[in-house]
């Protein structure tokens, strides 16, 4: 059926947006607005708050960095000075007082002139400083009057039993050697042997142990 509206234009009912269109428009606006509001909330509330917190922390860190750098410089200097102190301590504490050592060694060898127990002399001496874990050494070409090894053993015993002298030593040659004769001497027989004395490394010497 065809309906013809014969009313003049001004009397006719106004053409209205359909409910569906309006509803869809409203829905679209709500969707867009709420999502924009949510975005705003996330950006302005959460992000900005976190950003402000970060800036604040960075500011704090900036203030502390000055102290940290100062402490770093102190630690670096401390390490350098510790290393230097250690070096000089090592230098000083690793020095062998050869005069004392040799003086004591002469005392033991001389044995207050008593040649009954032993009578020893040397042809040469080679003394070397130690390094790191290797202690200093003394190496001598020795002779002991008599063709009996007892006297030589007595001498080696006297060295080992002299606490003052031997406390920083690690090892000494065992008795032994060969009997040599020099007819121009009286008595002509003597035992020739190599006397090797090895000291402990500097860190184990009695005087350095006491300091600890």
């Amino acid at each position: 059926m065809i309906v013809i509206n014969l009313l003049p234009q001004e009397f006719r009912r106004r053409e209205r947006t359909s409910f569906k269109v309006f509803g869809s428009l409203l829905l679209a606006i709500i969707m867009a607005c709420s999502s924009i509001v949510y975005l705003g909330h996330i950006y302005l509330n959460e992000f900005k708050a976190v950003e402000a917190m970060r800036i604040q922390r960075e500011e704090r860190l900036k203030n502390l960095t000055r102290f940290a750098k100062y402490d770093d410089a102190l630690v670096a200097e401390k390490k350098e000075y510790q290393a230097r102190s250690k070096t000089i301590q090592t230098i000083a504490n690793s020095r062998v007082l050869w005069t004392r050592l040799l003086d004591d060694f002469i005392d033991i060898t001389f044995n207050e002139g008593n040649t009954e127990r032993h009578n020893v002399w040397f042809k040469n001496l080679d003394a070397r400083d130690g390094r790191g874990k290797v202690g200093p050494t003394m190496s001598l070409q020795a002779y002991c009057e008599s063709d009996e090894f007892t006297k030589q053993a007595n001498y080696l015993d006297d060295i080992e039993n002299n606490e003052e002298f031997f406390r920083d030593f690690l090892s000494i040659t065992s008795p032994g050697g060969r009997v040599v004769h020099d007819e121009s001497k009286d008595p002509s027989a003597a035992i020739a042997f190599k006397l090797d004395l090895r000291m402990k490394p500097a860190s184990k010497w009695a005087r350095n142990q006491r300091k600890r």
Partner: peptide, 9 residues
């Protein structure tokens, strides 16, 4: 101690 203490014959 680096001298032979024995007497010369």
């Amino acid at each position: 101690i680096f001298v032979d203490p024995r007497s010369e014959k």
